[in-house]
Design a binder for these strands. Sequence first.
DNA 1: AGGAAGCATGGTACCGATACCAAAGCAAGC
DNA 2: GCTTGCTTTGGTATCGGTACCATGCTTCCT
Lengths: 372, 372
Amino acid sequence: MAGSRPPARRAPTMRDVSRLAGVSPMTVSRTLADPGLVSEEARRRVLAAVDQLGYVPDRGAGSLSSRRTGFVALIVPSLINPNFADTAAGLTAAMRPRGYQPLIGVTGYSVSEEEVVLRAMLSRRPDAIVVSGMHRSPAARDLLARAGVPVVEIWDRPEAPIDRAVGFSNYAVGRLAAETLVAKTRVARTDIARSNVARTGAARRTEGAVRIAGLGPARTGETRDFRGEERLRGFRDGLAAAGLADAPILHHGSVAGAFTQGAEAMAALLARGGAEAVFLVSDIPAFGALMECRRRGIRVPEDVQILGFGDFEIGRQCVPRLSTIAVDAAEIGRRTGALVLDLLDGVAADPAVIDLGFSLLLRETTVAESGG
Amino acid sequence: MAGSRPPARRAPTMRDVSRLAGVSPMTVSRTLADPGLVSEEARRRVLAAVDQLGYVPDRGAGSLSSRRTGFVALIVPSLINPNFADTAAGLTAAMRPRGYQPLIGVTGYSVSEEEVVLRAMLSRRPDAIVVSGMHRSPAARDLLARAGVPVVEIWDRPEAPIDRAVGFSNYAVGRLAAETLVAKTRVARTDIARSNVARTGAARRTEGAVRIAGLGPARTGETRDFRGEERLRGFRDGLAAAGLADAPILHHGSVAGAFTQGAEAMAALLARGGAEAVFLVSDIPAFGALMECRRRGIRVPEDVQILGFGDFEIGRQCVPRLSTIAVDAAEIGRRTGALVLDLLDGVAADPAVIDLGFSLLLRETTVAESGG
DNA sequence: AGGAAGCATGGTACCGATACCAAAGCAAGC
DNA sequence: GCTTGCTTTGGTATCGGTACCATGCTTCCT
């Protein structure tokens, strides 16, 4: 009958293989771990026995003895966020050929949950730990510092890393966003003045205070998007440096359902009088904001310019294509994987902090450079 | 200096805790596993020692002895696909409160890779295995059947499950898609005839053969999206049942970069004369197709109706909102988690195959029911 | 020829927890 | 008072591998 399992007869062990092959268990172990150590003849017999029995080694048992588990803990806020999914995929791809298995822990952006997840990971004795961001509870930081294995903080650029870091400065992303929108607003006004369009909205925009807004996560509550907050902080500072200290910065709620949050934040901004240009801390809410504009017949970029962050696939595909500040999420994963492998091999030549940087991708939700 | 780790002094063991607390290791073990078994006094002393030493039990060692690892293997084609990410999140949420750790394996839709990943998982001796879909290599199926632990196939509705299954019939989804588009095409023609619009394209559509198309994955190659293929098969059969056996079914390539694939497939379809209505096997390429239409000034749903699958967040947010056939990906994960817990507790009351069904969500990329 | 060095193999002692059984301590029942 | 049974605790073996050391044999060198 479907649904029944064979009575769980014990899986064959190395001892079973060794008996069948007529060698000692040690020879079986060596054959599987480093075939070069055993004779051609022994290897042949062992592999035949492995095949015949369908033997799959128990790495848990091996780990206990060798004190290497082959696990790499990866703790991220969410797997739904394509950025972290990409990073997880990149890390996995880099490490699986060497037999490492990622242990993925998801915190749901919760500070307290990170600690719980971290404890669960540590009980599996990972050979290395990869965590996102640089902000965490003191207890969590302490657990990491005492873990006795390589620790890599990713997706940020800590001043004082616990051990290593692979990422970029979220604060600098925000600064660049501010500078970009300040410049683009100037371009837009020039274009409008030059083309002498008599539309009310456009006409109004060529005079008066520059209106640039930022939309990002709230800085309170149990769930926190610290990296988004950093970008928003950099953005605010960047605007202040350009003399726009009173620019509206609107905060939306929890990071879950980010599409909707972007739409709602944009609606709130419009209710407050709108803006000429808006920075959103992620492409996901930026897409939501873009769609909100479309629903209301607000033209992008003519009426409102939109700048996102992350270079998500969705921003490349939508119409108009989203201008964004790009980071290579998969590369963060791959680079972290390579670094971890080096550290585990004792070949740690890299600097403590690897800054992968970011790049500005001006597409269709910001205005083009003023021609001539 | 940043980047240096403390010399990896051995982590404290249960023995260290027992010495500090003045009890035997067994009492420590019991305190942690089932506190009700030890006296108030002993429990207090043990917990204090645990706290003082920062002891984290080694579950690998425990597993070896108890023959329960607390791992649940989850093998999916991709984590980038939000559907599987949602399912993974749902499964994780359901199982973590009971101390189970998901071991996520990603196959990249590759048949041969699934076998490799499965072997890697088996070497960790998971207490249960969850795999997506029902199509796999004979060797992989054999490994699963002999694993000696509960096996749950998800995201499909196998006739002969290896053990258990939680999902829905992808074939039936395709049939429903066909029926839906046949009906919707009739509605659209009626509307157009009634409103007497003189537009060339519209006029042409009220006569001649119904043109309904399907866009989905190729059925060859090393990477296969079997579930998408099933939906497309059901769609083709559904059209044939409606007398449209010669409807164009276009296949796109690898499942990676599905946004672009949808756009390209739509472009190819338009090059072949277009269609009145199109079914795409996932919302991701459906969104790509929708944007391709927008780039070309083709109106949706007036000129082309689009129906997707999956009810992804993106389809809820985009303009126009995507009509789709919805499945609850997170619920598949949660339900699977609950089933696995029951099986591990020996409370297996559920039927071998749990069909969660699906539902039709008619939003804005298909025409509304004809008024009156 | 004698000894050093290297290769292939095996034996033994763990790794750090839990299962299982034994036993001590104590209260209740006759 | 002694047995019975429950609660609480501890000792010992073991889970399935690998580290480490020892051994037998061959090869090569002086």
